[in-house]
Design a protein around this nucleic acid. Structure first.
Length: 210
DNA sequence: AATCAGGACAACCGCTATGAT
DNA sequence: CATCATAGCGGTTGTCCTGAT
């Protein structure tokens, strides 16, 4: 990257290459200072975009694929309890993101609304008005903890990601081993920092702001 | 086989909360 | 205490995929 070069911020879908870069740099720098990470990684993305990609797609331990009936029920129950506080709801569903739940709810409720069209319409200014769809009295929130069925997709995905990213290992708690093929990485950061970057912590700062 | 509609998902935008200086 | 930067959240939009016609 040439200093002074105008870098236009990329938007839209992420490429595999970008994903690999992002995952690697998040492992190095941690899940914070996204603007900084976006800069040093060489990704022409905003920090915000990087964070979103990580949180919603690349984060280890995320489940991918359809929700299980248990999860669906839990979302209904939790929405009744918390309303549109998707982050709160997501915190009760390990491996699911607020975005995912939000999307699910949206389509789910739209379908419900269509099915029940004709019933007295409630105020439509907010999706909260759809609350009356979830008429189930609190069914006793089961502690999802580790629901064990239906995760094979996720595991497959994790293996796929690990192989995509060139990691040799992917352990059960979602930690990649430090075997990223860094020589293949296009980012300039490698030239700057021959030191083991994964040792860096909050209080360690890059001096190389470019 | 072509097309259309709806569903599912990914990503962006704007706003707010929080922490650092 | 005020200001600024960053992170996080919720709403919305865009795109791709799949099943129905």
């Amino acid at each position: 990257m040439v200093l002074g070069e105008v870098r236009e911020i990329r938007k839209g879908p992420w490429t595999e290459q970008e994903d690999m870069q992002l995952v690697w740099f998040v492992r190095l720098l941690g899940e914070r200072r996204w603007d900084f990470l976006a800069k040093v990684s060489g990704l022409n993305r905003t920090g915000k975009s990087c964070r979103l990609r990580w949180v919603n797609y690349l984060h280890p331990g995320l489940k991918h694929g359809r929700m299980t009936p248990e999860e669906e029920q839990l979302v209904l129950d939790l929405h009744e309890k918390y309303g549109n506080r998707w982050a709160k709801i997501a915190s009760k569903l390990p491996g699911r993101t607020d975005n995912e739940i939000k999307n699910y709810w949206r389509t789910h409720m739209r379908k419900k609304a269509q099915e029940e069209k004709g019933s007295p319409s409630s105020p439509s200014s907010s999706s909260m008005s759809l609350n009356n769809e979830a008429q189930s009295e609190s069914t006793g929130l089961t502690d999802v903890g580790e629901t064990t069925n239906g995760y094979s997709n996720d595991q497959l995905w994790q293996v796929e990601m690990a192989s995509k990213l060139g990691f040799e290992e992917y352990n059960e708690v979602g930690c990649y081993s430090n075997s990223m093929p860094i020589n293949s990485m296009p980012s300039p950061v490698w030239e700057y920092n021959p030191e083991p970057l994964w040792m860096m912590d909050d209080h360690v700062e890059f001096k190389q702001e470019y």
